[in-house]
């Protein structure tokens, strides 16, 4: 019986492979955005033992604060998160000082009036615009997306058969890979291609040939204090890592716990295998 099952499985597998290769060929022909797939990066937080690089998150926050935050909000991230375990590792005092440099409207007070007060660690990052409509009005009709979850909200389809392999060798860094590629992917449009007025050609953009955001990064726009090279590529990597942390702040805890749980389950399964063998040893089946 088993032999037959195996033979059938083998036949199915062979058919699958045949299908796979032909589909892969066919898909290359179809026009799909982005024109260029994201370049795969090395990330400290990839893989089974992955964890965030604290210094990189700090640099990434600096890039976000000095560049991105001019247009992009980050409504779900609180200042206190900067001091959380598995994050950029700010001290509580540093967070307090940092938060208090921004103000927020609170109230009403006893006189019934709204008032401005310095932000507390429990307050969220400030948004650059009062609301979405104001953001659109200031950016030529395009809404700069909130960045809290951006790294999980963008992923370029890898297509068949890659997604099958990704199941066994996890690839969960599509988001940051995409963001790096987008930030460094601006270029002049090839000859014969015209882009709509007020947009910038970028073959890595997921939703067309060009986008409204002008190239945000350039060499030396942010001053690093730790001697890290001040290149566009480095900024893009650092801010993408930071955005991944913002979207998935418990990644370190998840992977660390996962390792323990998996180890436990594997040993448990081994014991249960021997229990089962003991139980069935007198019975042919």
């Amino acid at each position: 019986m088993t032999a037959k099952m195996i033979r059938w499985a083998a036949a199915a597998f062979a058919a699958g492979i045949a299908l796979t290769s032909s589909i892969a060929v066919a898909q290359e022909a179809a026009v799909e955005y982005p024109l260029l797939k994201p370049t795969r990066q090395e990330w400290s937080f990839a893989g089974i033992f992955g964890h965030y690089d604290q210094a990189q998150l700090q640099r990434g926050y600096q890039v976000y604060k000095e560049v991105c935050s001019a247009c992009h909000s980050m409504k779900l991230v609180k200042f206190r998160n900067l001091a959380d375990e598995g994050g950029p590792g700010f001290t509580e005092d540093a967070v307090k000082v940092l938060a208090s440099t921004y103000s927020i409207q609170d109230g009403p007070n006893d006189a019934g009036e709204m008032f401005e007060r310095p932000r507390l660690p429990s307050d969220a990052f400030p948004s650059p615009f009062a609301n979405d409509n104001a953001a659109r009005a200031a950016n030529g009709g395009a809404l700069p997306p909130d960045m809290s979850l951006l790294a999980k909200a963008r992923a370029v389809h890898r297509g068949f058969p890659w997604f099958v392999f990704d199941m066994f060798w996890p690839y969960q860094e599509q988001g940051p890979d995409y963001i790096v590629s987008l930030l460094t992917g601006y270029q002049d449009p090839p000859e014969g291609v015209t882009v709509p007025e007020g947009t910038y050609y970028n073959p890595h953009f997921i939703n067309g040939i060009s986008l409204r955001m002008p190239p945000p990064l350039d060499n030396d726009v942010v001053q690093y204090s730790d001697g890290t090279p001040q290149t566009k590529e480095q900024y893009a990597k650092d801010v993408s890592a930071f955005l991944m942390w913002a979207a998935e702040p418990h990644l370190d805890a998840r992977k660390a716990l996962g390792f323990k749980v998996m180890l436990f389950l594997i040993v448990f399964a081994g014991i249960l295998y021997f229990v089962k063998r003991q139980v069935w040893r007198d019975v042919a089946h």
Partner: peptide
């Protein structure tokens, strides 16, 4: 084996 399995459970 049984005790190990029980303890793990």
């Amino acid at each position: 084996l049984l005790h190990a399995a029980g303890a793990f459970g």
